[in-house]
Amino acid sequence: MKPAISIPTPFGPWRLSPVPLLVPALMVVALVLVGSPSTWVTLTLAGLAMGMMIFIMASGLTLVFGLMDVLNFGHGAFISLGAFIGVTIMTALSPWMDSLSLAANLGAIGLGALVAMVVAGGFGYLFERTIIRPVYGDHLKQILITMGGMIVVEQVIYVFWGPDAIPIPRPDSLKGAFAFGDVVLEKYRVLAVVVGLVIFAAMSLTLKRTKIGLLVRAGVENGEMVETLGYRIGALFIAVFVVGSALAGLGGVMWGLYQEVITAPMGMSVMILIFIVVIIGGLGSVEGCFLGALLVGLMNNYAAYLAPKVALGSSILLMVAILMWRPEGLLPAAKGR
């Protein structure tokens, strides 16, 4: 007789937790404060889009920390590198970018993003082997050497692409907005939300439904025990690092298109938001990272509308409030070490 396996498997610490309700709760509070439903919808979409892009960039970092106990301050290098590679490909495909066809525009962006992911992933492999590998287990050295690595990458970008910011206009089909009465939904933000949801769904399914995902979740909790069960976790470390770097590259392309300009320090600039998201979410937790990113994105946009003077500090205020409530973050990965 087989054991009762028909009951759906609970996933991580979501069960019976009020934490996921924070996002809709914030939306409801904002609706009351904003007053105008159409403005609220626009702000909410902008916040969700921003949150999704931050999630794409941050998800790899939180997994790397959870699984490998590595504080990679150089993660921003993959974001900048991905953006520059992606833009280079899109520039080379300018007939597609300039076309009025949505398919051609998305093809150029998709190809640019794909190449950016491959290059950022490959660079991530080299970064892990040469820069991070010698400093496993030493957080201070990790911070110093990965920040140094990021500075070197920035300088390399200056060498190849020059010191000036590069404008990157969105293709025509992604400019403008969908209008439904008073409600205005910017097209690119809709795309960002869709891409973010697809990435989150793919990561969730991989982590929940595959043996590799099980290994990653188990490795985040207790890598030593995973090895004791006979799995070579070193290869898993590298794979996760490469995937995390590739996602950062994708995030760089999307962030660049969102800002419509790319600069070498863009990765370092956005790292502040990424660290806030990772800390709010709970180190090592993809679901926490997702929630944290949405909260930060929404908070930024609501605050920018309601109280522009505090908008800059809104993410930090959010982090302080959440850490006072849950010092380990919203959904921290269980640690069994």
């Binding site: 099980l214 979740r217 069960l229």
Partner: peptide
């Protein structure tokens, strides 16, 4: 692995 189910612990 406390964050995994009993079944997932066994599968691993």
């Amino acid at each position: 692995f406390g964050g995994l189910t009993v079944r997932e612990n066994m599968v691993l």
